[in-house]
């Protein structure tokens, strides 16, 4: 299981990276932490002719707390964000969800932006970004940057709004809203596996934003009224996502988890406490 041959580039600036992306088009792939891409390369499920390593770009390595969001640069690993002091206070959902990403060892190298760029429909970070209504910042070879809302960025299985010559430079997670509670639940086959269903919730006094990962071809988030019985809305949500059977779980099971875990999550309960404590590390 060895990768096919490719040219290796280590651009030293964003501009240079974008120029290379433009020049080589679909034959080029970016690598940051490589925790998804390397496995795919090893299995030869991708055989790009050019690999662009963005590790050499200095100014992508930052976590900044700004007025209304936490900005995470493309060089930041998942472990670094998880260990960012005050994460639980700034973006509580990340503190809850990130321990569920792979394992200690993959979080050490996997980057936050890399996971967003990969757009795996079962991955935790895209779900968090979608649920919180965050943004992705992209920059092209002319140095122009644009911001894309999460819901527009994720377009399908491993498919995003990123254009050929663009580099994701940063993702922005909205800061905690005063009075809002953040909850996260995930059901996976094993510790660290991709979610069969992952649910993220932002619970305000009168409304709930519920995000669902692992079911549709992208993370999905919905707003529900807080005090009404959510059953009907959850059932509609469950049926709307095109759940499918795979080797590990049926579509009906996925829908059931959305209905039942969704209700639990909205109501809040002992499991959420349990969760918050069980996965620190």
């Amino acid at each position: 299981m060895k990768p096919a041959a490719f040219d290796y580039w280590r651009p030293s600036s964003r501009r240079e990276a974008c120029e290379l992306l433009h020049e080589h088009g679909d034959e080029a792939r970016l690598i940051a932490g490589g925790q998804s891409l390397m496995a795919v390369l090893n299995m030869r499920l991708a055989q790009p002719k050019h690999l662009l390593d963005i590790a050499g770009i200095e100014d992508l390595h930052y976590i900044e707390r700004r007025d209304d969001h936490l900005a995470v640069g493309a060089g930041v690993t998942q472990a670094e964000l998880l260990q960012y002091p005050g994460l639980a206070e700034a973006v509580p959902l990340l503190a809850l969800a990130m321990p569920w990403i792979g394992h200690w060892q993959t979080r050490n190298r996997g980057t936050v932006c890399g996971s967003i760029a990969h757009a795996d429909p079962s991955a935790e970070l895209p779900l968090c970004l979608a649920t919180l209504g965050g943004q992705v910042v992209l920059e092209n070879r002319r140095g122009k940057s644009r911001r894309v809302m999460a819901e527009d960025f994720f377009q399908g299985v491993l498919t995003t709004d990123r254009r050929q010559d663009e580099l994701i430079t940063e993702v922005r997670f909205p800061l905690a809203r005063p009075g809002a509670e953040y909850r996260f639940r995930e059901v996976a086959m094993r510790h660290g596996d991709f979610a069969i269903v992952a649910l993220a919730a932002v619970v305000d006094s009168n409304r709930v934003t519920l995000g669902v990962g692992g079911v549709a071809d992208r993370p999905v988030s919905r707003e529900l009224a807080r005090h009404a019985d959510p059953s009907e809305a959850l059932n509609a949500l469950a049926w709307s996502l095109g759940a499918e059977d795979d080797a590990h779980a049926t579509a009906a099971y996925r829908r059931q988890l959305i209905r039942e875990l969704g209700r639990e999550l909205i109501a809040g309960g002992p499991r959420d406490e349990e969760n918050a404590h069980a996965r620190q590390g």
């Binding site: 299981m1 496995a39 993959t106 190298r109």
Partner: peptide
Amino acid sequence: EHGVCGACTVRVDGRASRSCL
């Protein structure tokens, strides 16, 4: 060679990392 089993883990600048990835 796909980052799951962890047998190839080494420390890179102190951080435990998969050397197959």
